[in-house]
Structures are given as C-alpha cells and as structure tokens.
C-alpha cells in the first residue's frame, strides 16, 4: 500500500469529494445560501449607490426650478425639456460640444501618431528610462505646467486658440497611450515580426505591415481612454480656452452665478457633458476595462 501511488494522493481535492455525501449536503448549503442572499442584497445596494446620484441629476434636469425646490415633487413631477432648450438653444451649447469633441479628437489622434511608434520602440528596446520620462507627464501636477505654458503662449498670442488646447490635452492623452501600448507590446510575441523579416520585410516594414495591424485592439483601447480623459479634462481649458473655444466642463460654469444657481440648467448642462461619454463607455466597456488594468496585473 505504501509504495502505491493512489489517485487520491495525486489529487488532494479528491479527499473532500470522498466525504460522506450526507454530511456535506447538510452543512454547505446553509452557509452558501446565506452568502448568496447577502451577496444579492450587497450587489443591489452597490449598484443603487452608484446609479442613484446619476439618476437624480437626470431627473433634476427635467424639472423646473420650482419643482426642484419642492420636496414633495422628488419623484413625481411633470417633466419638461425647458432646461435643455436653455442649454442647447439660448446658451449655444452645441458649439461647446463641438469644441470638446474637436479638442479631444485632435489631441488623441496626434498623440497616437507620435505615441504608438514610441511605445513600440520603448517596449522592444526596453527603454525604461525614456519611458519613465514620458510617464512623468502623468505624475506632474498640471498647474506646474500651466504657468510656463501660459507665459509662453500668451506672449505668442495663442491663448484662446484651439492649437494650445489641443497641445495641452495631448499632455493628458500621450502618457496614457504610451503606458497602455507599452504593456500591450510587452506581451506581444516577437515571432510574427521575425517571420515577416524572414519574408524580406525591413524592420520598419514589419512594424507597419504586421505589428501595427495586430495591435489595433490595443490602439483602440488607448484611444478610447485618451478621448475620455481629454473630454473630461477641466484645468487646462479653464486657463487656456477663450470665449469661443471653451470646452464643455468649463462652459458648465455659465450656470453658476455668484447670486444664484440655475439648478435645472446646471443639471441639464451636466447631463449634456456626461451623456456622450457614458454612451461611449457602454459600447466600449471591454476596452476601457482592459485599458485601466493595463500593466496592473503582471508584475
């Protein structure tokens, strides 16, 4: 017996499985059922606490200011689109929507052009120190760059133009793109490129024709996140945008006056900023998650 290796010894789990079934059935289900109920309740509480405030914002955007002040009309009220008419019509929000979109789009695109090859090179040649320099951009507080930028760009009379805004938002987009794509290229096997080299392509040719098409998923991930973070950015546009080039997060402040706040308009404006980004998030959830967790799970 002692010299025979039984299947039981090979699979330690088999021992529990071999326990008398009656005893198992009696003990386990009680604990698991209690846990299951607890888990469902906990999940409902979690989902509600994350969604309820957003729902509240949306409901308030459909109320008149009189209804917002009336506690009895918390949930039952007559919806109105007046706030949205104020926001989109009178306050010309569509042009701010365009500004936000254009700045986020252009800064993401330009960052991709310079960021993708850089990420590739930094990953393949293990340029950790150079990578650290680019990633510094993520660590530095934005204000410390704003002062010199403001100095230079106002002397060049460029403050208030799109160029400055796009450049400053690239500061948000570029490190994200480099960071995400570096970890993407780190985990991409070299063999395919080597095969392309054997087939007669140059190094750059292999990158353009083989590596680049294969990294489209990573590029999509990086672009979506870069776009979202650029869209949400507030500080750069607060200082560097002009009356015509305001982005949405800055334009929201039009509804906050010293004396009073137009709550209905403010909530409608907030919904207008958030909705596009949430719609993007709903459709690209998988990419966002993989981008946020890039480099987090492997050492």
């Amino acid at each position: 017996m002692s010299s025979v290796v039984t299947p039981k010894m090979l699979r330690p789990g088999a021992e529990t499985a071999a326990r008398p079934p009656a005893q198992r059935r009696r003990r386990k289900p009680l604990a698991t059922r209690a846990y299951k109920v607890f888990r469902v309740v906990a999940l409902i509480v979690i989902v509600l606490s994350f969604l309820a405030p957003l729902a509240w914002m949306f409901l308030a955007s459909l109320k008149t200011n009189v209804d917002i002040y009336d506690a009895s009309k918390t949930l039952i009220f007559e919806p109105t689109t007046a706030n949205y008419e104020t926001v989109l019509g009178r306050n010309n929000y569509l042009s701010f929507v365009f500004n936000s979109f254009w700045v986020a789009f252009a800064s993401t695109a330009l960052s991709l052009i310079i960021g993708v090859p850089a990420a590739y090179s930094m990953s393949r040649f293990a340029m950790r120190r150079s990578a650290l320099v680019v990633l510094m951009a993520r660590i530095i507080p934005g204000v410390s760059l704003l002062v010199p930028w403001y100095y230079v760009f106002s002397n060049l009379s460029m403050v208030g133009g799109y160029t400055v805004l796009i450049l400053s938002h690239m500061f948000v987009a570029l490190p994200l793109i480099v960071y995400i794509l570096m970890s993407y290229y780190d985990s991409m096997p070299l063999e395919l490129e080597e095969a392309a080299r054997v087939d007669g392509l140059t190094h750059i040719g292999a990158f353009l024709k083989v590596t680049l098409p294969l990294s489209m998923a990573g590029i999509a991930t990086a672009s979506i996140l870069a776009f979202i973070f650029s869209w949400n950015n507030f500080m750069f546009a607060l200082v560097l945008s002009g009356a015509d080039t305001k982005t949405l997060p800055v334009a929201i402040f039009n509804f906050v006056a010293y004396a009073s706040i137009d709550w209905g308009g403010l909530m409608a404006a907030s919904v207008v900023v958030t909705i596009p980004i949430m719609v993007i998030a709903l459709f690209t959830q998988k990419y966002i998650v993989s981008g946020l967790t890039a480099g987090a799970t492997k050492g």
Partner: peptide, 11 residues
C-alpha cells in the same frame, strides 16, 4: 460600476 468612473468630474 463603470459609469461614475467615466463621468466628467466637473459634472
């Protein structure tokens, strides 16, 4: 869970 994370902080 994803929605608060992507929402614009100012909003």
């Amino acid at each position: 869970i994803l929605l608060p994370l992507v929402a614009t902080p100012v909003a």
